[in-house]
Nucleic acid binder design. Structure first.
Lengths: 193, 193
DNA sequence: TCATCACTAGAACGAACGCTCTATCGAGAG
DNA sequence: CTCTCGATAGAGCGTTCGTTCTAGTGATGA
């Protein structure tokens, strides 16, 4: 019998897949590597995920979705002012990225790009993730008194600039893109007050 | 002898590789597929690119670099006002993306993300591309009277938001992220006048 | 005419891929 | 105890991968 607090095999496989695909992408991540690093056998992998690699990728994207959503919620709870929240957001992202040796970027983007137009189910999971994150930003802004349509548009560019800046920071191995993005997002948000 | 205006085998291979990796990424693009679609044999591919797939990817990224740089130059030449240029830029990107069936996103990003931290030479080529594009935006802004440090920072966020919005537009198969990004970039640029 | 050499051509190699298959394990039910 | 069945285990399937290799082509210059 499995006690409740220990991590089950299924969850271990999902987390490992998410981390590996975050770093290497969908195609470069093999099932052998997943089963090895998750300390599970191929039999276990196909037992929990009969849909194979595709199903595994979908679950990994959803895991990354929840992961980044938790990050956003934490930052937004700590910073009351939206502009200050933007700065805190990019600062924490930059720190995390640097501490991982510039390896752990967005847990969804790489897989999403690889599967765009080729794996509709994975693409849909990624789209749901982006929309989920936008909703968190939108709610933060409307709760701070911004008009719904302004908040809607801002949410798009906030998430998109975070994505682009993190990608740029990862490729250039520098915190600068994220730091600059934070300042510009704060300025942009403030310009709608 | 080869006349000057016809496209040589080498150039045909580079263009095909660039287009395929733009759509499918680095790992999912096979040399067999490249040689087939470029109407070249594997022997020709390895004759021109002894470094194999890695060298081919580097050349493909550089090709994408020149391609997007030409696009930026064209837009910047047509629109004198920087804010108007931002709007034209996102509009044209959205149109091109839609017309390709949401397949042709940034020709560098996918390959860059897949190789981040694993293929230093490809990553460096991608970094050079981003820096090249930023320089074009920077020059456009300084020529319009913006202070150097302001232009430097804006160039970062312009390119990064373009990247993020195009990625988002591709995944959601919608022009909205790019259209919104154009408005926000114009507003942000104007706020520094 | 003949040697040269950039280029084309594609068979073949070992390795790795996603996936299937059968066998086994082990805790709870009867 | 035996039966059941979710879970574990890993050998092996056919295929495709990147790469290597040898052979052949055809225009060029001596």
């Amino acid at each position: 019998m499995r006690t409740q607090h220990e991590i089950g095999t299924r969850e271990r496989i999902v987390r490992t897949t998410s981390r590996l695909m975050q770093r290497q992408g969908y195609e470069a991540t093999g099932l052998k590597q997943i089963s090895l690093e998750a300390r599970a056998t191929l039999g276990s992998v196909y037992h929990f995920f009969p849909g194979g690699k595709r199903e595994l990728a979908i679950e990994a994207v959803r895991h990354g979705d929840r992961e980044f959503a938790d990050f956003l919620r934490t930052v937004f709870d700590q910073e009351d002012d939206p502009a200050a929240a933007m700065l805190a957001c990019t600062r924490d992202l930059a720190t995390g990225l640097r501490e991982s040796g510039w390896l752990d970027g967005c847990p969804v983007t790489t897989t999403a790009l690889e599967s765009a137009g080729r794996e509709p189910e994975i693409q849909q999971a990624a789209e749901a993730a982006y929309e989920n994150w936008r909703a968190l930003v939108r709610d933060k802004l409307t709760r701070s008194g911004f008009a719904p349509d302004v908040a809607h548009d801002l949410a798009h560019s906030v998430i998109n600039l975070l994505e682009g800046a993190e990608l740029s920071a990862q490729v250039s191995q520098s915190e600068a893109p994220l730091v600059i993005a934070g300042r510009h997002l704060a300025r942009l948000v403030d310009s709608y007050r």
